[in-house]
């Protein structure tokens, strides 16, 4: 499979010191890649760097085009949907307005309407709460809203920052089930950051492991699952 996203020697950080010390990785077209690691390893930083939300250097290509100098909104327009850390809900706006913002960059009204319907197919609860203020939603519902909002961008690549964070196991299972469907049905490539490695490896076909800003292990999901370091530190058996 060809690489949709390719990062070479990616360095990034918030102040002068780098958090990422030059990492290389690819996300394959149509695939699901998991980015694993402990707290503070640089997982969220990687996603933010890809979207131009922080200072970064190196080379990032999306579908062959360089994006490392583009502004966040430009990267989004080129087809990256980002479900950020903390879900990024517009708390004061209604659920419907949150979704409409997802489709802000698009001009195809009919396409948006159809996609909106498809989102309700994945997440029927959002349709029930369409007029409600998004701040009143539960954590799981906000996560669903964030995923739907990012998908309405019509992204080629979906970035997910800890979709399981703070959610009950049942909800987490439901969300990951939907993510698998989305990957299969929409052919959207996914890069998912997770602390819960076993969950992420179930979804992913490829994975890599970050430790203090460097990639220490990478390979197919099944190979990573067998890896001694990963098994002991992150899978706990």
């Amino acid at each position: 499979m060809p690489a949709l996203l390719e990062a070479r020697d990616l360095r990034a950080g918030y102040g002068p010191p780098d958090v990422l010390h030059g990492i290389d990785f690819t996300v394959e077209e149509g695939g699901v890649t998991a980015l694993l690691g402990a707290n503070g390893a640089g997982k969220t930083t990687t996603l933010r760097a890809l979207c131009g939300m922080i200072r970064r250097s190196g080379r990032i290509t999306l579908g062959g085009e360089r994006i490392e100098r583009a502004a966040t909104e430009e990267i989004v327009r080129r087809g990256v949907g980002h479900v950020p850390d903390g879900r990024g809900t517009f708390l004061e706006l209604s659920v419907e307005e949150n979704l409409r913002l997802g489709a802000y960059t698009r001009r195809d009204r009919a396409g948006v309407a159809a996609d909106m319907e498809r989102m309700f197919g994945y997440f029927p609860r959002l349709q029930e709460r369409l007029r409600q203020q998004a701040g009143t939603l539960s954590g799981g519902e906000q996560q669903m809203l964030a995923i739907a909002r990012a998908l309405l961008v019509k992204p080629r690549l979906l970035l997910l920052d800890e979709p399981s964070f703070g959610l009950a196991p049942l909800i987490v299972r439901e969300i990951f089930h939907i993510l698998r469907r989305i990957n299969a049905e929409e052919r959207t490539s996914i890069l998912v950051v997770e602390q819960n490695a076993s969950l992420a490896l179930d979804l992913a076909d490829h994975a890599f492991l970050l430790e203090t800003g460097r990639i220490v292990v990478s390979g197919t999901a099944s190979a990573i699952r067998q890896d001694e370091t990963v098994r002991r530190s992150y899978l706990g058996y």
């Binding site: 939300m53 517009f90 802000y104 961008v153």
Partner: peptide, 9 residues
């Protein structure tokens, strides 16, 4: 931040 991630300038 979220607005930017929706493509809003």
């Amino acid at each position: 931040v979220s607005a930017r991630l929706c493509g809003v300038n």
